[in-house]
Computed example of a mutant assay.
Amino acid sequence: MFKIGAHMSTSKGFHKVPLNTIAIDGNTFQIFCHSPRTWKVKDPKEEDVIKFKENMKKNNISFKDVLVHSGYLINLATPNDENWEKSINLMIEELKITAKLGIKYFNVHPGSHLGKGDEFGYDRIAKALDIILEKLNNLDVVILLENVAKKGGNIGWKIEQLGEIIKRSNFQEKLGITYDTCHGFDSYYDIRNKNEVRRLLEEIEKYIGLEKFKMIHLNDSKFPLGAGKDRHEFIGKGEIGIKGFETFFSFEEIIKLPMHLETPGDDSEHAEDIKVVKSILEIKG
């Protein structure tokens, strides 16, 4: 069964998310576990956690198909020691909540080296991940590194870079990747072309292993190939377009993975995007 959903609000409680997901015709979702623009984390209430798990089961949403996204302030590559330690501590708290909710996968952008260079960034990120996973080694949570747009000191715009981080970690079995279609398009992965999708999959297999490819962020792009702008667009209304996603969905390695929309707008607009995605699948199939 094709797994599609969107980034959902938790403002009315975690327990509302499965119900709101079904309401937009989704069967998976992504959430933040706290306000993503703050360093402060508030533990969810036990009653909310219990109802969340009940609603997941009642609505047949798999805990292994959903995703928690890290807060925006986390930068595991930063040369600033204070912010690096704060990033580690915040991610530890976020991962504890992820596990408390029973969710398997946690998504994080690798970070920016802020001018210190890729080698510095690889080691800095891998060391941070090792500190985090050493402390939380008993939790059944896998950290997914997300590919990012090619701009500034960002690390992870090439698949090879994500592989380099994983290779340097002592906890490779606890690491995997999420592929973001807009970020990839920003970084010259042209999924409108079958040969380019094959290149993407071949790079994932070569540098990481396809078994570690767990999730997809499904976003069109407001800007042309290689722009490095990181501006998401509604599915089919951007530079990737309907034909581009039709090509992307023609690969079994892609179509089997949970996909989470991070397109603009609220639940009603995500519902429209889900309709568009399903119509593309009908065209393809």
Rank of each mutant, 00 (worst) to 15 (best):
R168H: 13
W39G: 12
S221C: 02
M215S: 13
G265R: 05
L175F: 02
F213G: 05
F171N: 08
G115P: 15
P44C: 14
H34V: 05
K3I: 05
Y207S: 14
F14W: 15
L257D: 04
K40H: 15
I159G: 06
P264I: 06
S62R: 11
E203A: 12
G285N: 10
K53T: 09
G115K: 11
S9M: 12
T21K: 09
I88G: 13
A149E: 08
N137K: 15
Y188C: 13
M8Y: 04
P224S: 04
D118K: 15
L225F: 02
S250W: 07
M215A: 10
H15E: 15
G115Y: 10
E94N: 12
I24V: 09
D123T: 14
Y179H: 09
E93A: 07
K42L: 11
G13D: 08
E246D: 06
I159C: 09
R124V: 11
I204E: 05
G5W: 05
D25E: 12
E134G: 15
R37Y: 11
D273F: 02
K135F: 04
G226P: 06
E134V: 01
I165K: 06
E262Q: 13
D123Y: 14
P110K: 03
T98M: 09
G226F: 09
M1D: 09
M8N: 07
D118R: 14
M1L: 12
L101F: 09
S169R: 11
K256T: 13
P224N: 09
K16G: 01
S35T: 07
K206V: 13
E252H: 13
P264C: 03
E252G: 06
L218P: 00
A126I: 01
E211M: 10
F245S: 03
R198M: 11
L133V: 07
G241P: 05
M1N: 11
D186I: 14
H183F: 04
F52L: 08
K104F: 07
E205P: 02
H217Y: 02
F213K: 01
E46V: 11
F234P: 03
V108M: 04
F248T: 01
G226L: 00
F213P: 00
K100W: 06
I131E: 14
S112L: 10
K12S: 14
I166V: 12
E239V: 08
F29G: 00
I31G: 00
E173C: 13
E47A: 06
K206F: 14
S250F: 02
F14T: 11
G163Q: 12
I22G: 06
Y122G: 12
E119I: 13
S62Y: 01
N138M: 10
T98K: 07
C33K: 02
K104G: 01
I191M: 05
